[in-house]
Amino acid sequence: MARSEATTRLCALTREEKPVTQLIRFVLGPDGVMVPDTDAKAEGRGVWISLDRDAVAQAVKKKVFGRSLKCEVKVPDDLPALTQRRLEQRFLSALGMCRKAGQIVTGATKVRALLASGELIALLTATDASPDGRSKMVGPLKALHYGAEEEGIVGFDVPHIELLSSEQMGLALGLENVIHAALMNGAAARSALEKARRLALYSAKHGQSDSDRDAVGADILSNGME
């Protein structure tokens, strides 16, 4: 059963209590090495850190893991990068599940048709897409949001996700390369959106207040929508 937003844990670095949706768990493996437990389901002693690459780097630097567990632990120097790769893998696997469930379409023509119908819950664009190709998708998506606003539709939000390369998306979906894709409503697609949010939040750049970071995942998912 998924943890709710109300479930909280203590960040071992900042000592702040936060919802688990804003944290990531690390677990001590049988070999004494700390590894990211991105699903927060692994057995063993765990340490929670804010879902933030800089925070994980600081936790490594300040030896937070060993201090929290009160024992000697091995912490890989590349733990921040390893954690990002694990979060990317979870998102990629989720996209593969969307394909099996029939909740994702690919290709510019099919994606434009879905945009025209409004029957999508997220637009995906490869990070290496051309500016022209990107604008041809983002324009109609903006129009959807403007239309919903004019009609007074509350809570309408179709995020624009740019987190993966065309090669990464292609591998996840069993295709050569994927530049444009769209998610349709369904359990698999909603799960993929949550994994995208966590990856976006972890990768976010800093210089923001803690209160601003509460919304940073949504900001990145809506990249270019302002």
Rank of each mutant, 00 (worst) to 15 (best):
S211A: 07
V216S: 15
D212P: 01
A113T: 12
L87R: 06
R25N: 09
T125D: 12
G46Q: 07
L141P: 11
D214L: 09
K205Y: 00
I161W: 08
D128A: 13
C71A: 11
G102P: 02
T8D: 05
L23F: 05
A181K: 07
A200G: 09
A181Q: 08
E16R: 15
G207L: 08
K63N: 11
Y146V: 08
E149A: 11
G102C: 02
K195G: 00
Q89C: 00
F26L: 10
S191N: 11
L123E: 11
A196H: 01
V105A: 08
D31H: 11
G152W: 03
C11Y: 04
S165L: 07
S135P: 00
Q84I: 03
S117W: 00
E119D: 14
A172Y: 01
R9W: 01
E151T: 01
A189R: 14
H180L: 04
I24E: 01
L144Y: 10
I161N: 04
R53C: 06
G170W: 03
V216T: 15
A116M: 04
K61H: 05
W48C: 00
K63Q: 12
V35M: 08
K195V: 00
H180C: 11
T38D: 04
V20T: 15
E194K: 10
K41C: 09
G44Y: 07
I179K: 13
P30I: 00
R15T: 12
H180G: 03
A192E: 13
G207D: 12
L141E: 15
A215Q: 05
G139A: 14
G174A: 03
A192K: 12
A218K: 12
G224V: 10
Y202N: 06
V158Q: 03
R85E: 13
G133F: 01
R197P: 08
G174L: 02
S203M: 03
R67F: 09
G152S: 09
G174T: 06
T21E: 14
K70A: 14
K205C: 00
L201Y: 02
S203Q: 11
Q84A: 07
G96M: 13
L201N: 08
H145E: 08
P80W: 12
M225Y: 06
S209T: 15
A126P: 09
A181N: 07
